[in-house]
């Protein structure tokens, strides 16, 4: 196949995926206002996503906070003979950037993949068709609860990751760098403003929407039996991660532009 044909084929595929995604989101929004919310399902999925991701989120943010304290402490020790502003570096890095992004990546790997696998399995075993024959549709029963679950669980997990990460930084600061706890926490509270926290917090909603859209879409359009489910799951995680990083840049730029720095 010549490069132009290949380019054309790829463009058509991208347009197809974007079109289907648009219609999926449109249906989700339509049924959100035209059907009864599946409250039990929303609760079940929120708990599932939260619990599934809690352990990995804790470990990830704990070690991230620890390594941030270690690196910033020793760097400033080398430069100024004193570990300066460790709390500030740990706090700002976590709250604005690392906790939201890393938590989103962990959730996409842990919960996003399981959503894709679950919906994908339902698609290849005709369970999605069965939903239609039983008077409902995948938007109402499957997608809306999962959108809600990600949008509720991810911000909560991120706040939790902030706390755990700062605690991790505190452990290293006090044990390895001998920084008094009052200094460490003063360094954070002295400079941190609500808008700094909001900068990271607002981004989690964009990430949650992205993970929900990608994982549901990849599941819903799974083809090719068990092998197809595996492929869809991998693709879902990879695409979510790339989109999280890209969206992080653009949303951060926008937030800076409107003064939420």
């Amino acid at each position: 196949m010549n490069p132009i044909s290949r380019l054309g084929e790829i463009s058509i595929k991208i347009a197809l995926h974007l079109g289907r995604t648009f219609f999926m989101v449109k249906n989700v929004l339509f049924w959100l206002f035209h059907s009864k919310l599946e409250k039990n399902e929303i609760f079940k999925q929120t708990v599932r996503i939260g619990v599934d991701s809690l352990g990995v989120t804790t470990l990830t943010s704990l070690f991230t906070g620890m390594v941030l304290a270690l690196q910033s402490g020793y760097t400033s020790k080398n430069l100024f003979n004193e570990p300066l502003y460790v709390g500030t570096v740990v706090g700002f890095s976590l709250v604005k950037e690392l906790a939201p992004v890393l938590t989103a990546i962990v959730v996409s790997g842990r919960a996003g993949s399981s959503v894709t696998a679950e919906i994908g399995t339902m698609a290849v075993t005709e369970q999605i068709d069965a939903l239609y024959t039983l008077g409902t549709n995948p938007s109402t029963y499957l997608l809306i609860p999962r959108y809600f679950a990600f949008i509720i669980a991810l911000p909560i997990l991120t706040v939790f990751a902030n706390i755990v990460g700062i605690f991790g930084g505190f452990l290293v600061s006090s044990i390895k760098l001998s920084i008094p706890s009052s200094v460490y926490f003063d360094d954070i509270l002295q400079f941190m403003e609500v808008k700094n926290f909001m900068h990271g917090f607002i981004k989690t909603f964009f990430f949650a929407f992205t993970i929900a859209t990608v994982s549901c879409y990849k599941g819903l359009y799974t083809e090719g039996g068990a092998e197809g489910v595996g492929r869809a799951t991998t693709n879902s995680v990879v695409l979510s991660m790339i989109l999280i990083l890209a969206i992080d840049y653009f949303v951060s730029s926008f937030l800076v532009l409107i003064g939420i720095t």
Binding site: A130, T133, L134, G135, T136
Partner: peptide, 26 residues
């Protein structure tokens, strides 16, 4: 009513929840 080739039962629900699934909507 529709009987699917492989049954298409919902794995996450038990038998009675599957049987009565459509009643809520239909």
């Amino acid at each position: 009513g529709y009987l699917f080739q492989e049954g298409a039962l919902f794995d996450s629900l038990n038998v009675w929840e599957n049987v009565t699934f459509g009643l809520k909507y239909l």
